[in-house]
Amino acid sequence: MRYDCAGAGQRTLSLFDNRSWQDHPPLLRPQMDTFRHLRTIHDLLGLLATAQELALPARVEARRQELVTALCPENMTPARAKRLATGSLPEDVRDFLKSLARHAGRARA
């Protein structure tokens, strides 16, 4: 079995100017915390990407896109990743995904 971080590892490094805790041990804790938060964000983005395959009504698709945009701010920082991953947004995404059950089985043409 292989582990897939869904891009969260690479994104974490980019937020730390591509410096690794392996070369800069004081970065261990902040990088691991940021990685954990970005992993949550990336998992949610993956689920929202999968939801794009459903034939969603326009207003539901618009909400899906709003959530994707909210998870992908232009200027991501470790602090912003923490706020996004630990705030109300993950629960909003999960509630949205649960609401899609009635659309299951209706794939895009």
Rank of each mutant, 00 (worst) to 15 (best):
G9K: 09
A8Q: 05
G105E: 02
Q10K: 11
P30D: 10
R94P: 00
L54G: 01
A81S: 14
G9Q: 06
A104E: 14
V93M: 08
I41T: 10
Q65S: 13
Q65W: 06
Q22H: 09
A109D: 09
N75A: 15
S20T: 07
A79V: 14
A55V: 00
P73C: 11
E61Q: 13
L45N: 08
R108G: 09
P73L: 07
A58N: 02
E61C: 00
D33T: 06
R80S: 04
P57K: 08
A81V: 13
L15S: 07
G105W: 02
L44C: 10
L38G: 12
D17E: 12
E53R: 12
A8Y: 07
T12W: 05
H24N: 11
G87V: 09
D4A: 04
H24I: 03
S99Q: 13
F16S: 06
C5L: 07
A101E: 12
R106H: 10
G9P: 01
C5E: 15
H24F: 12
P25T: 08
D17N: 15
A107P: 01
W21G: 04
L48R: 12
R106C: 00
Q10T: 11
F96R: 02
P73W: 05
A70S: 13
L84I: 15
L48Y: 08
Q31W: 06
G46T: 08
N75S: 14
L56P: 03
L89F: 13
S14T: 13
Q52F: 02
L97Q: 06
D92P: 01
A70C: 04
A8I: 07
D4S: 04
R36I: 00
Q31I: 06
R64D: 06
E74Y: 10
A58Y: 03
E74G: 15
R29N: 06
R36G: 09
A49N: 14
Q65R: 15
G46H: 09
E53V: 05
G105F: 03
F16T: 01
M32L: 14
L89R: 03
E61H: 07
M76R: 00
R102S: 12
H42C: 12
S88P: 08
R83V: 13
R63N: 06
L97N: 00
R2G: 04
T50Q: 15
Q52L: 03
L47K: 14
W21N: 01
R102W: 07
A55T: 01
Q52M: 01
L48W: 10
V60L: 01
G7I: 05
E61M: 03
W21T: 00
A109V: 01
R106I: 00
N18K: 10
M1F: 03
R94Q: 11
T34C: 15
L67A: 04
P30F: 09
D92M: 11
D95N: 11
R63I: 00
T77E: 03
R63S: 02
Y3K: 04
N75M: 08
G9Y: 10
P57I: 01
G7E: 03
L71A: 09
A85W: 12
Q10F: 09
L71D: 07
R102V: 11
S99C: 08
R80P: 00
K98L: 09
R11K: 12
A70P: 05
A62M: 09
L28Q: 11
C5H: 13
S14C: 05
R2E: 13
P57Q: 11
A62Y: 05
F16M: 04
A62W: 11
E61K: 10
I41K: 11
G46I: 03
P90S: 03
H37E: 14
G105Q: 05
R108Y: 02
T40S: 07
C5F: 13
L89Q: 04
